[in-house]
Design a protein around this nucleic acid. Structure first.
Length: 576
DNA sequence: GCCGTTTTCGGCCCGACTGTTTTCAGTCG
């Protein structure tokens, strides 16, 4: 059973308990455990089988037992019992924004509303207002929310790249204004998360209303919501919600820290503050005893107030970063500027949009010291296959171009397909004539974890494979990663000196940050590649670097931060 | 239900907003 399924079962049980009126901290404990399990990079089912689920922060003996029961019986007995007492469909109703367990329970007890359909009927007949505490506005909100759920499903997340396209433009516009002081993106966009729900901007201004108005009047704004000296809120034409908050400069650090999150990080930070007799909010740091408030112009001051050094936004997961900060163990994170070479890109030979010379020139302009050209291989679909003779012809072309290109090394490479049996789709004698080989899975995604793991290990052990491309095959918001066991894969990669890429395409970010961390800890050499299919997407490097940073990795762990001289001998083909 | 540089019991993050209310509970981020 996957972690996501276990997490979903515990999340449902949390809501059932909440509907049943259980102690709210018990409910919080189940939700927290569900979150930890969802994010855990290992199989929690396996951990639970070994009795080690309690290794996870937030999972105790009770939950360990409940997970095992879930694995054995397919259901948690406590949930079965509660579902006899209450309709399971009540859980769905709590998905409506503004309608929580307490409200659902009240509507069920007093009006017999047990499902979303019941709720729609009752709301349109204005029967909700008959319940104390519920009114006309709720009926209106409920009907709107039900329409939205039916038409587009619920809350919509989108790729960071789509969010930044809007967010960076808005920030740039606001910064140009004479009234603007500091203007910064906050939220998950500033932490370089994979996907975002909305855009948070925090600012200071000499004329706050002018800044708020500028957002309301921006050409990207479709729906204009509130506005004033405290900030403004809009929805863009493509449906993104944008919140701007404006505060006096003295509080800017508090506000930026608060709205950068993550929520989990902030919770941990406030817990730490409490232990020091302090209370942290978006307005300042308060001494609990005296009520004295310290405001902070910078985030660094907020962290200093609780005895910590500044923590980079990408590290604010709410996991071990506070302890690392306290012990002086925060990593020195890799930067885009430190990347010296690109090792995965395509040209018009396969499915790229730009020619070989165009890609080379674009990489040269970015100041790279080396570029590997890695078109798709012989069995690639959609008419983009490259047969062996065409590849070797291309390799000769690349070497000619290399000889004529100053200050940049060009590598003749390929992104070869790993077939379902683990073999590659060029003969070894062809691969031996290349400078660099990436092996990727592009077909037969639906294999068992065991077979997929073996398939990848076969490629990793191949003496002419330098690197594995987009390991999990996931497409964010579109396609789940295929089943595989990363433990043996990383062990094999480390043992064989096979590198693994962080694919920087913002739709992939693959390795993800958790696996990137595990891989680095296992001793795997990691490279960050854009997999660019045109010159413009060479710029996606920043998303791959972001994933590495979120994994806590520094330049030393990323092979393509090395100079060409230092990188070249890391390839297998240069060894005896 | 979980957990421990105040702890194995007694706590468990903070504030704003909303809608419904004459002072607040519920929900959210």
């Amino acid at each position: 059973m996957r972690n996501a399924e276990i997490a979903a079962a515990l999340g449902e049980l949390a809501t059932l308990y909440e509907l049943d009126g259980a102690n709210r901290f018990r409910v919080i404990a189940y939700r927290e455990a569900a979150r930890v399990i969802r994010d855990c990079p290992h199989s929690v089912a396996e951990l639970a089988r070994e009795g080690r689920a309690t290794d996870l922060q937030g999972v105790g003996e009770t939950l360990q037992m409940k997970i095992v029961a879930l694995l054995d019986e397919g259901e948690i007995p406590a949930a079965v019992k509660l579902k006899k007492k209450l309709p399971a469909t009540l859980v769905e109703i709590t998905r409506i924004p503004g309608v929580g367990a307490k409200t659902v329970r009240k509507m069920y007890d007093e009006l017999g509303i047990a499902s979303l359909e019941d709720l729609r009927v009752a709301a349109s007949e204005h029967r909700l207002r008959g319940v104390k505490g519920l009114g006309a506005k709720l009926e209106e909100n409920v009907l709107e929310a039900l329409d939205r759920i039916e038409s587009e499903g619920h809350e919509e997340r989108r790729l960071l790249s789509e969010t930044l396209e809007v967010g960076e433009q808005l920030v740039e516009t606001l910064r140009q204004l004479p009234a603007a002081g500091r203007v910064e993106l906050a939220g998950s966009a500033r932490r370089w998360g994979e996907t975002c729900k909305d855009i948070d901007i925090v600012a200071t201004a000499t004329d706050p209303e002018a800044l708020a108005d500028a957002l309301l009047e921006h050409e990207l704004a479709d729906e204009r919501r509130s506005g004033g000296a405290g900030g403004a809120s809009i929805r863009t034409h493509n449906g993104l919600k944008v919140d701007l908050r404006i505060v006096p400069p003295a509080e800017f650090g508090n506000l930026l820290q608060h709205f950068t999150g993550s929520k989990e990080h902030n919770v941990k930070l406030r817990e730490r503050a409490l232990g020091l007799g302090l209370s942290i909010s978006e307005h300042g740091v308060t001494e609990t005893e005296t009520g004295k408030v310290q405001t902070c112009e910078t985030e660094a001051e907020v962290y200093k107030a609780v005895g910590l050094p500044y923590i980079e936004p990408e590290l604010r997961h709410g996991e071990g970063e506070l302890a690392e900060a306290e012990n002086g163990e925060l990593p020195n994170l890799v930067t885009v500027e430190e990347i010296r070479g690109e090792l995965h890109c395509h040209t018009t030979l396969s499915d790229g949009k730009n020619t070989l010379p165009e890609m080379v020139e674009a990489a040269r302009r970015r100041g790279y010291a080396y570029l590997a050209v890695t078109d798709h291989s012989a069995s690639h679909g959609f008419g983009n296959d490259v047969q062996a003779d065409a590849l070797l012809e291309r390799a000769a072309e690349i070497r000619d171009l290399d000889a004529a290109t100053k200050r940049m090394k060009l590598l003749a490479g390929s992104e070869v397909n790993v077939m379902p049996d683990g073999s590659l789709d060029y003969e070894d004698e062809v691969l031996a004539q290349l400078d660099w080989v990436i092996a990727s899975v592009h077909t037969s995604f639906r294999m068992s974890a065991e077979r997929m793991t073996q398939r990848l290990i076969s490629a990793i052990e191949h003496p002419l494979v330098d690197c594995i491309g987009h390991l999990s095959g996931r497409l964010l918001l579109k396609r789940d990663p295929y089943d595989l066991n990363v433990g043996p894969i990383f062990a094999a990669a480390a043992a064989n000196g096979t590198m693994i890429e962080i694919n920087a395409n913002p739709r992939r970010r693959d390795l993800n940050e958790r696996n990137a961390r595990l891989a680095a800890d296992a001793g795997v050499r990691i490279v960050i590649n854009t997999d660019a299919h045109q010159t413009a997407t060479l710029d996606n490097m920043r998303y791959g670097v972001a994933t590495a940073r979120r994994a806590g990795l520094g330049a030393a762990q990323i092979a393509n931060t090395r100079s060409w001289r230092s990188f070249a001998p890391l390839r297998k083909r240069t060894r005896a």
